[in-house]
Write a protein that binds this DNA or RNA. Structure first.
Length: 291
DNA sequence: CTTATTTGACCCGG
DNA sequence: CCGGGTCAAATAAG
């Protein structure tokens, strides 16, 4: 069986492969004739990383300590009107913050979320939005996230994740993974993973029926600055490339990525990468608060 | 119609 | 009591 680290590594490798394949496709659309759409690939990338993050952030815990201790509450008081009894237990006290992400724009993380609240937070000018996994009911998935704009000259949105996904929304991801693995298994490796956001395509290729991102709106995106930001991203310009560096040294323990030699075939991407890293650094990105 | 979001009330820990 | 998180009725969207 696989250790959590191995699983996470696998997920990352898949994501890496997907990313490479997508990149290749963008460079040479003709080369790849598979039936997997760009959208599927992008979705898989995000999904892989989400899985990996989820696995890694949970693995330090000895067991799968879900927050569900609904049973431990003894006898619920008889409330005729509203029974608030149960869900209340599931909050910060029990659920750990898995990880946090600051990004210039709330992005599609591959999961389908349902908004259940919005609150203004003291000493902040923007409201915080509360989301839970849309499969909360179907699969008793208790993943939740909070999202809030924490800065707005360059808009920065902080998304904080709680719990982890127990739902199986893999749908056809498996198919995608397999296809990807078959094709990209031994491409030269690069350390740079780049993927854009706004993986829209709601209209065109929706072939596989992936869950679509929640529409957030009103609350947050109303800011003028944000608005114009949106405008820019409006059509084909896939703005805001989210860039991250696959940092091998950060994966602290025993395993090491197989390939350490890097093919820097994409110098053009490096420019972009450096630019973005610069600004992302300022935001203190990818602050994994795992402990 | 069904399903998702909005929004004020409510809960609860500090 | 306050602040943050959640519920659920009302509303909007599809």
């Amino acid at each position: 069986m696989n250790s959590p680290h191995e699983k996470a590594m696998q997920a990352i490798l898949y994501g890496h492969n997907c990313a490479k394949r997508l990149k290749q496709r963008l460079e040479d659309p003709m080369a790849d004739d598979s039936s997997v759409s760009d959208y599927d690939l992008a979705t898989s990338i995000v999904h892989c990383f989400s899985n990996a993050i989820s696995i890694l952030s949970d693995s330090p815990k000895s067991e799968d300590d879900q927050v569900s201790d609904l049973s431990s509450m003894g006898s619920p008081p008889p409330l005729p009107e509203r029974s608030y009894s149960k869900k209340r237990k599931i909050n910060m006290t029990n659920s750990i913050m898995n990880w946090r992400d600051d990004s210039p724009d709330p992005y599609y993380d591959g999961f389908l979320w349902r908004k259940y609240g919005q609150k203004s937070i003291k000493n902040t000018k923007h409201e915080r939005s509360y989301y839970r996994c849309s499969y909360n009911i179907d699969h008793a998935c208790e993943a939740r996230k909070h999202e809030q704009q924490i800065k707005d000259n360059p808009p920065v949105y902080r998304t904080t994740y709680f719990g982890h996904h127990t739902c199986k929304i893999n749908h056809n991801h498996d198919a995608v993974f397999t296809a990807v693995r078959d094709q990209v298994d031994d491409m030269g490796s690069s350390r740079i993973i780049r993927f854009g956001k706004e993986l829209d395509q709601e209209k065109e290729n929706h072939s596989t029926g992936f869950p679509l991102p929640v529409k957030h709106e009103e609350g947050i995106i109303k800011e003028e600055t944000t608005d114009q930001y949106r405008e820019m991203t409006g059509d084909d310009v896939k703005d805001c490339q989210h860039v991250m560096e696959e940092n091998q040294s950060s994966l602290s323990s025993s395993y090491t990525p197989p390939s350490s030699s890097v093919s820097e075939t994409d110098v053009s991407d490096l420019d972009l990468l450096l630019n973005n890293l610069d600004s992302w650094d300022r935001y203190g990105l990818f602050d994994f608060g795992v402990q």
